[in-house]
Amino acid sequence: MTASPIDASTDPGDLLTGLDPTDERLAALHARFAETALGVGAVDVAYRTLDSPVGLLLVCATDVGVLRVAFEIEGHDTVLDRLASTVSPRIVETPSRLDAAARELDEYFRGERRAFDLPLDRRLSTGFQRTVLEHLPEIGYGSTASYAAVALASGSPRAVRAVGTACATNPLPLVVPCHRVVRSDGTSGNYRGGMAAKQTLIDLEAGA
Score class of each variant (00 low, 15 high):
Arg25Ala: 07
Cys178Ile: 06
Leu152Asn: 07
Gly164Asp: 14
Glu74Ala: 11
Leu136Gln: 09
Ala208Asn: 11
Ala145Pro: 00
Pro119Val: 14
Gly127Val: 02
Ser4Lys: 08
Ser52Tyr: 13
Thr2Cys: 04
Pro119Phe: 08
Gly18Trp: 03
Pro21Gly: 02
Tyr141His: 07
Glu104Val: 01
Gln199Met: 09
Asp14Asn: 06
Ser9Thr: 05
Pro95Thr: 06
Ala61Thr: 02
Leu19Thr: 15
Pro173Met: 03
Met1Asn: 15
Ala115Glu: 15
Tyr191Thr: 00
Asp185Gly: 04
Ser52Leu: 09
Arg90Gly: 01
Pro53Val: 08
Thr17Lys: 15
Thr126Ala: 14
Glu205Ala: 06
Ala8Asp: 10
Val176Thr: 01
Leu58Ala: 03
Gly127Ile: 13
Ser4Trp: 05
Asp7Pro: 15
Val175Met: 05
Gly55Cys: 05
Ile73Val: 15
Arg161His: 14
Arg113Ile: 04
Val59Phe: 09
Ala101Gly: 12
Val40Met: 11
Gly111His: 11
Gly186Arg: 03
Gly140Ala: 12
His179Gly: 10
Leu50Trp: 04
Val176Leu: 07
Leu174Arg: 06
Glu93Leu: 05
Thr165His: 10
Asp20His: 08
Tyr191Asn: 01
Val182Gln: 07
Ala100Trp: 11
Gly75Ala: 02
Glu112Tyr: 10
Thr94Ser: 08
His30Gly: 03
Leu152Ala: 11
Pro157Ile: 12
Leu38Gly: 12
Ser184Lys: 11
Glu24Asp: 06
Asp117Gly: 12
Ala46Tyr: 08
Gly155Tyr: 04
Val45Asn: 03
Glu74Leu: 09
Ala168Met: 13
Thr94Gly: 02
Asp117Trp: 06
Pro12Phe: 12
Thr131Met: 01
Gly65Pro: 04
Ala162Thr: 13
Glu93Met: 13
Tyr141Glu: 05
Arg90Gln: 08
Glu35Ala: 15
Tyr141Ala: 04
Leu19Lys: 06
Thr62Cys: 10
Ala28Ser: 14
